[in-house]
């Protein structure tokens, strides 16, 4: 009884389980549903007219409500990018791949997207790209409905046209 234990306790096993059931919110739900029709929706600031993607209830910049949904194009421009050479958590993707900020036509901020169907070395700021959607009938209304973006072959967009939409 008085003898110290021969083996010290090295660790205590502790399992933490915390399930969550998130509310998407009406704004995000509206956007996700529109993916089924290959539509990308943003919300428009009632004060400055800036269009945010994904749609948000207010402009963080102007603090005014964004109370109007607007459809933006599924084509846009690469505003900045990086080449990823390390495995990505939770995603099966061939390495290296290009992760880019894409400013869609009609949107005032860019979204993040993978660029495929071209060499990483060919991706550049100003490259015109378009969304590649899952085929008809397979779209579920979630972010995987857009598989990736690929070059359109159009001439590059001038730097001044996207510098404010990085």
């Amino acid at each position: 009884m008085n003898e110290p234990p021969k083996e010290p306790v090295k660790y205590v096993d502790s399992h933490v389980r915390l399930p969550y059931h998130y509310v998407a919110g009406d704004y995000r739900a509206t956007q996700l549903r529109a993916f089924k029709e290959k539509k990308i929706l943003g919300s428009k600031c009632s004060k400055t007219g800036k269009v945010f993607i994904p749609p948000i209830v207010n402009s963080p910049e102007s603090f005014a409500p964004c109370d109007e949904f607007v459809a933006v194009s599924d084509k846009g421009v690469v505003t900045t990018f990086c080449v990823v050479c390390i495995p990505v958590i939770g995603r099966e993707i061939e390495l290296p791949y290009v992760a880019a900020s894409v400013a869609l036509d009609g949107a005032d901020i860019s979204i993040f997207a993978a660029i495929q169907e071209c060499k990483a070395a060919d991706v550049r700021m100003g490259l015109r790209v378009e969304a590649v959607w899952k085929p008809e009938g397979e779209r579920q209304g979630n972010h995987e409905d857009i598989l990736y973006f690929r070059p359109t072959g159009e001439p590059d967009a001038p730097f001044e046209s996207f510098i404010h939409r990085l």
Binding site: V16, R17, L18, P19, H21
Partner: peptide, 23 residues
Amino acid sequence: GKTSEGEPDRVYNLQLEPYYHAA
């Protein structure tokens, strides 16, 4: 905070001392 999205009892359990009270 959206209390309804998680399970508050589990969250508050983790607030306790982990070796004995929480366990």
